[in-house]
C-alpha cells in the first residue's frame, strides 16, 4: 500500500503556470524527497498530492485508484506541515487523537494508539500539555504523532524542519529516517535543503520552475547530474562550473568539477592560484582560490591543510571526475 502515480499533472494559478506538466512514479515504501529552490513548485506538487489544491489537468493515482477528485480526507494520506499546524486549543493527547476521533474509532482503541505513538516519539510525559507549552522539537513530534496514528498510505512532509535550530534539525532528520525504517511507509518529503535530501532520500526529485530536472537516487544525482541545474544544486560546497578556454579544450560549453575532486599542492599543479578565503573545519578545509584565466575555484582538502589568505597554491582537477555540459546545459 502506498504507491502514488502522477500522470501529466499540471497546475495553473490564474495566469501563472506553476507546474506545466509532471509525470512521476512513487513506489510503495519509498522515501522520496522533492528538492529545489524556493518557488520551484515543490510545495504545490505536495499539496496537489494531498488534495489541498485541485489539479488543473492530469491524474493522481494512489494505489491504483484514481484519486484526482477525492477530497484530502479520503486519500488516506497524512501530512506534517511546516508550521506544524497543531490545534492550539487541544492538548497533545487530543491533537494526536483527532484524526482517529474523526474516523469514529472507539475510545479504548484511540487511547491505546495515542499512547503507542507517544511512546515511540518520547511524548508520554507531555500528553496533557497544550502545544504552546512545548518546544519546537516537541511540537514537531506531536505533528508527526498525529500523522502516524492513522497508519496512512503515505506521509507528506512540507519542509518540516525549517523552523528548528541546526542541532535539532540533525536530530529530527535521524528520527524521521528511523521512523521510515520502522514503518516502511511511503514518505514524500519537501525541502529546499539538499543536505536533507541527500541524507534521507531513497529517491530525489529535483524540481525547477515546476519541471522535474532529474529523478534518481542521491548517488546517481551526485555522480551523474543530468544538467547544469542539478550539478549546481546537489553537492556541498557547490560544484565549480568553468567556462571558456578550459571548457573548450574539453569539447564542452561548461565543465564542472567538484571541490573534492581537485588535488592541492604547494609547489606544482595544472593551475596556479591565490587563496582568498580558507575555512578550517578541522575535518575538512575549504578554500576559495582565485585562479588566473579560470576564475574563483572552490577546493576541498580532507583534514587540515595549512593555508591563509594570500597564500599561493597549485590545483590539479581530477580528469576522470570532470562533468561536461553542452550549450543547453545538458550533460555530455
Amino acid at each position: 500500500m502506498g504507491s502514488i502515480n502522477l500522470r501529466n499533472v499540471s497546475k495553473v494559478f490564474g495566469e501563472a503556470k506553476v507546474i506545466p506538466s509532471i509525470n512521476l512514479q512513487i513506489n510503495e515504501g519509498e522515501f522520496v524527497v522533492f528538492v529545489g529552490p524556493s518557488g520551484c513548485g515543490k510545495s504545490t506538487l505536495l499539496r496537489l498530492i494531498a488534495g489541498l489544491e485541485d489539479v488543473s489537468d492530469g491524474e493522481i493515482v494512489i494505489d491504483g485508484q484514481n484519486a484526482t477528485e477525492l477530497p484530502p480526507a479520503k486519500r488516506g494520506l497524512a501530512m506534517v506541515f511546516q508550521s506544524y499546524a497543531l490545534y492550539p486549543h487541544m492538548s497533545v493527547r487530543s491533537n494526536i487523537a483527532f484524526p482517529l476521533k474523526m474516523a469514529g474509532m472507539d475510545k479504548g482503541e484511540i487511547d491505546r494508539k495515542v499512547s503507542d505513538a507517544a511512546r515511540v516519539l518520547n511524548l508520554t510525559d507531555y500528553l496533557e500539555r497544550k502545544p504552546r507549552q512545548l518546544s519546537g522539537g516537541q511540537r514537531q513530534r506531536v505533528a508527526i504523532g498525529r500523522a502516524i496514528v492513522r497508519q496512512p498510505k503515505a506521509f507528506l512532509f512540507d519542509e518540516p524542519l525549517s523552523n528548528l535550530d541546526a542541532a535539532l534539525r540533525v536530530n529530527m532528520r535521524l528520527e524521521i529516517s528511523e521512523l521510515h525504517q520502522q514503518l516502511k511507509t511511503t514518505m514524500i518529503y519537501v525541502t529546499h535543503d539538499q543536505v536533507e535530501a541527500m541524507t534521507m532520500a531513497d529517491k530525489i526529485v529535483v524540481l525547477n520552475r515546476g519541471n522535474i530536472e532529474q529523478v534518481g537516487s542521491p548517488l546517481e544525482l551526485y555522480c551523474k547530474p543530468a544538467n547544469l541545474f542539478v550539478a549546481g544544486f546537489i553537492g556541498s560546497p557547490r560544484m565549480n562550473l568553468i567556462e571558456g578556454k578550459f571548457a573548450e579544450a574539453k569539447g564542452a560549453k561548461t565543465v564542472g568539477i567538484r571541490p573534492e575532486h581537485i588535488g592541492l599542492s604547494r609547489d606544482s599543479g595544472l593551475w596556479e592560484g591565490t587563496v582568498t578565503i580558507a575555512e578550517h573545519l578541522g575535518s575538512d578545509t575549504f578554500m576559495h582560490i582565485q585562479v588566473q584565466g579560470v576564475g574563483t575555484v572552490t577546493a576541498r582538502a580532507s583534514g587540515e591543510f595549512w593555508v591563509r589568505h594570500g597564500d599561493r597554491v597549485y590545483l590539479t582537477p581530477d580528469e576522470t571526475k570532470l562533468y561536461r555540459f553542452n550549450e543547453k546545459g545538458l550533460a555530455l
Partner: peptide, 9 residues
C-alpha cells in the same frame, strides 16, 4: 488544512 487531512468533515 490539517483538519481536512485528518479526515474532518
Amino acid at each position: 488544512e490539517a483538519a481536512r487531512m485528518d479526515g474532518a468533515s
